[in-house]
Design a protein around this nucleic acid. Structure first.
Length: 109
RNA sequence: CAAGUUGAUCAGACAAUCGCACGAAAUGUGAGGAAAGUCCGAGCACCAUAGGACAGAGUGCCGGCUAACUACCGGUGAAGGCGACUUCAAGGAAAGUGCAACAGAAAUAUACCGCAGAUUUAUCUGUAAGGGUGGAAAGGCGAGGUAAGAGCUCACCGAGGGAAUAGUAAUAUUCCUUGCCCUGUAAACCCCACUCGGUGCAAGUAAGGAGGGUUAAAGUUGUCCGCCACCUCCGCAUACGCUAGAACCUAUUGGUAACAAUAGGUCAAGAAAGAUGAUUGUCAAAUACAGAACUCGGCUUACAGAUCAGCCUUGUACC
RNA sequence: AGGGGUAUCGCCAAGCGGUAAGGCACUAGACUUUGACUCUAGUAUUCGUAGGUUCAAAUCCUGCUACCCCUG
């Protein structure tokens, strides 16, 4: 995940939370918003209630891997928020969940 | 063989594909023993070069070690354990102040029941052996002594003082001496000795923007002295700080050890929404606690599954 | 990164060296035809946890655990 595809500051996150649309299931919530930037931007959010540092890192890495394997639309910003039960899910569950979320939102190419 | 005790070690490995961070690039490098808690100590940075006094805080047997320490090592003493061994904030109560509930006659001074004598039938005197209370009651125990008793006298043990010997010292042993002037608590205030200036990498430096100030305020520290000529604010908005260091590994030497010295070798994450993941295969099987954020030395806590060692200890059986 | 606080019955809490007040709730009894109100009585095994100091610790000291707050 190169730097140009990342969301990098608090203001962007706040703006997307305020104006974006929202799709969710048991494990994750996807927030997305159309923008003018020619590429896509993505941020991963794993709150402290998910677990300790090791668990949070693991969940975030799996989310990132699952996202990497998808091809999503450009000119959009995405935030994926992990719920607290995501720490107990396997990688396959995470992969399927994220894929269906993007299908629901209609953001796959 | 069983139970224990002490000291250590490892913390899955290899291979393939895709992906991430650093880097000009490479067939390069890329999480720990605790990276954790933030409980101590330092480096480094700025404030004055870190100064003086007071307040405040910490430490407290002796010697060593260290950059430094409340850490560590060795010893002394005390407590616990049959033992190997383990644990200990271990100065001062004769500088002063405070506290010691309840019980008990009395809590740092006393005489309730007693014991003995006198007058006499309830008082006086002398006592502290015995009783009972308590965590603690004027050293313990035996003999002499006495009206009854009492370190009143003596032996032994304990305590204080002095000397000699051993030891760098804490201290230990022996001898002499003092009839013994006296409870506990300082993790109560306190006294004595030693140590500590403040703030922390979001420190700060450089560059940028805005404002205040002329010997006064502001700043430097909790207060005062002293000092300074500049000081304050803005915003993850850039670079540096940012990783070669009291570093690590191996060997030798000195030392009981902590540790030190010498020689050779190695360079081993450095991000900034924040890098290690996914899939597959092999090894019989399986992976606990846990993720670097300026850097080191300790301490504390968490931890699956294993392994090793000690002329270690105790018990049982056999020879 | 630095600093501060709290933990006591099911709930709210007082107590800061001498053996745990009080209120609500709960249980039992009384009152009432019955219920409520009212009255009486009862309920703390270890004061978050593990050690230490002390004759004696909820209280003093140290380590740990959980939660909360402040500065940036």
């Amino acid at each position: 995940m190169q730097r140009q595809y990342r969301l990098t500051n608090q203001r962007s996150f706040d703006y997307i939370y305020k104006h974006g649309k929202c799709v969710s299931d048991d494990l994750f919530t996807l927030v997305y918003l159309e923008g003018k930037y020619p590429l896509y931007k993505v941020g991963f959010v794993v709150a402290k209630k998910v677990g300790k540092a090791v668990v949070r890192n693991k969940v975030r890495r799996r989310m990132r891997e699952a996202f990497r394997l998808l091809e999503v639309k450009e000119f959009h910003s995405y935030i994926i928020v992990a719920h607290s039960i995501a720490s107990e899910a396997t990688y396959l569950c995470i992969k399927e969940s994220i894929k269906t979320l993007f299908e629901k939102a209609g953001m796959l190419k």
